[in-house]
């Protein structure tokens, strides 16, 4: 199980790195919002992976909070981007 979790963590780390590259290169505000969304999702999967490995569920409410924060974040960025563009 430890090996499996290690492999999973490596894949998640790579995914986070790729999202980070997109976050830096852009090109638009929306791409960055999307990259942050993926980064948040990778974080959530990581927290879940840790919870599954140690068999505890105390961290699961964090998943709920993180997912709602991510949702509010990308929706507000999307609205902001449209408003800026129509002016």
């Amino acid at each position: 199980m430890t090996v499996v979790v290690g492999v999973c963590a490596a894949m998640l780390g790579l995914a986070g790195l790729l999202a980070m590259i997109r976050l830096i290169t852009g090109p638009s505000r929306l791409d960055r919002a999307l990259a942050l969304d993926v980064l948040i999702a990778v974080t959530m999967v990581g927290i879940g992976l840790e919870a599954a490995y140690h068999r505890y569920t105390a961290t699961l409410p964090i998943l709920l909070v993180v997912s709602i924060v991510g949702f509010v974040g990308s929706v507000s960025v999307a609205r902001f981007a449209v408003r800026r563009n129509s002016e």
Binding site: A9, M11, A15, L17, R22, V42, V45
Partner: peptide, 13 residues
């Protein structure tokens, strides 16, 4: 699950 997350990163790039 990890593989799907990885494809998200690859596709994003």
């Amino acid at each position: 699950g990890a593989l799907f997350s990885l494809t998200a990163g690859v596709g994003l790039l």
